[in-house]
Design a protein around this nucleic acid. Sequence first.
DNA 1: CGTCGAACTTCCGCTGGGTGAAAGTGCCGG
DNA 2: CCGGCACTTTCACCCAGCGGAAGTTCGACG
Lengths: 265, 265
Amino acid sequence: MRAQPGRSVTSKVLALLAVFTPASPALTLSELARRAGLPLSTVHRRVAELVEWGALERGDDGRYRIGLRLWEVGSLAPRGLALRELALPVMEDLYEVTHENVQLAVRQDLELVFIERIAGRYAVPVLTRVGGRFALHATGVGLVLLAHAPAEVQEQVLAAPLERYTDLTITDPRRLRGCLAEVRRVGYAVSDRQVTMDALSVAAPIRAPEGVLAAISLVVAHDRADPVALAPLVQAAGRVLSRALGASRRPPPARVPLPPDQRRQ
Amino acid sequence: MRAQPGRSVTSKVLALLAVFTPASPALTLSELARRAGLPLSTVHRRVAELVEWGALERGDDGRYRIGLRLWEVGSLAPRGLALRELALPVMEDLYEVTHENVQLAVRQDLELVFIERIAGRYAVPVLTRVGGRFALHATGVGLVLLAHAPAEVQEQVLAAPLERYTDLTITDPRRLRGCLAEVRRVGYAVSDRQVTMDALSVAAPIRAPEGVLAAISLVVAHDRADPVALAPLVQAAGRVLSRALGASRRPPPARVPLPPDQRRQ
DNA sequence: CGTCGAACTTCCGCTGGGTGAAAGTGCCGG
DNA sequence: CCGGCACTTTCACCCAGCGGAAGTTCGACG
């Protein structure tokens, strides 16, 4: 075949799924082919099979969308719906008490993924979406997840340029390193206007026996926020969930062997 | 190859995803192979690619689980998370007013899939799960979805044996046909102890321009239920969501050409 | 109403990615 | 030390998948 070697059928199928994004959840066959970098006839064949199984659905407009069957399978992800089911009651409690935005996120590679969100109608608007991604170095949940990530992940994030969202976003690797150490020391993270100039978030880790699995946070308007008052609330929620996940009462030893200021590699 | 012809690579990949169920969300390689009916070496190769992409994840115990990446893609399904995002505020309103279970479901083939559920802590326990499936002929949401399904779907459901869950489950096709006509006439469905002997549900359709897209319901203890009082609440919720989806104020003409009692095929 | 173009579908002969039995490896528990 | 189980790798064969190109459908435009 003319196909460049090294492109497996499976990789093509996965590439077709990967071209769907929150910004483009419905695509025509040609768009699919173009974005996946595959010949039209190839896409036509693969997509037909995906539709038959239910991984994709074809709308009346001829566009393809992600199918309900794939949603069903995806909902079996332990770090997705399973975690959400566990956390939702606790998140609702936090919402009852504060009526602010409550967020739940996990780390995936060098970014975070929002698993659940309770958006208060009268709370400060947040730009996150369930299933959406975000950088690790700015949000409250991101700082918690990064602070407890394996050292190599931290190094990779610190080595790459840190995108600036506001004037208060931490973009200096050395400052971020210190911030992460502080997060580990006090057990929670505060992101004050580091993503938008109107919001502040306070986040705490959710631990499983294997380490920090997720993070939970409150996002509030920065001018009516008292991080020190919110921290115990969020930490308590994190601890309830950690216990449910079987983490020992005492946090396990830090995942980073040496304090950041002693690492001069 | 020795493989029986007609088994495409894509179908094998999808078969591997399909063996994950709510009852078995974590499987070893051998289990995957056995359940998918594929040779171990084949599964080994395909699974390696799925893990690399993030469709599956391998735990410390060596078992494979659905990966977060697949959850992310699945969350782009318009009939999944998108519908949920739209409906959740309305569902929360219903919950505030009643403090009973609120459910949201869509039809997939000859079954229904639960998209979202708000389970009251003190409400009657329900056995449904987000992402879970159920038969169409027993629950409130099921009756609504079936009543407004294309005629051929109705015929297929009516032709197959109707599983009995309680003494009150409708298992006679003729009675079910009449029940569906009634659901279309009054605009809501009541399932009184047809699934379990302690629960009753009241459901209403959610319409889009193309037809009934989903159903919303309240599930309450049968002995403290007044279906006639609950129906307007649920119907109002359905109508709010229908309007948001662009359905005209007046319901479109019935999807079933002839009233059931005139169809004597 | 005919023409054009874009999007989609089908066709066909070639070929390398996929195959699965079997051998190899690693890890228990006895 | 051995047998058993689960997983990984190997290898020669060959058909599923390939993609260019031709065919079809459909709506827009003059």
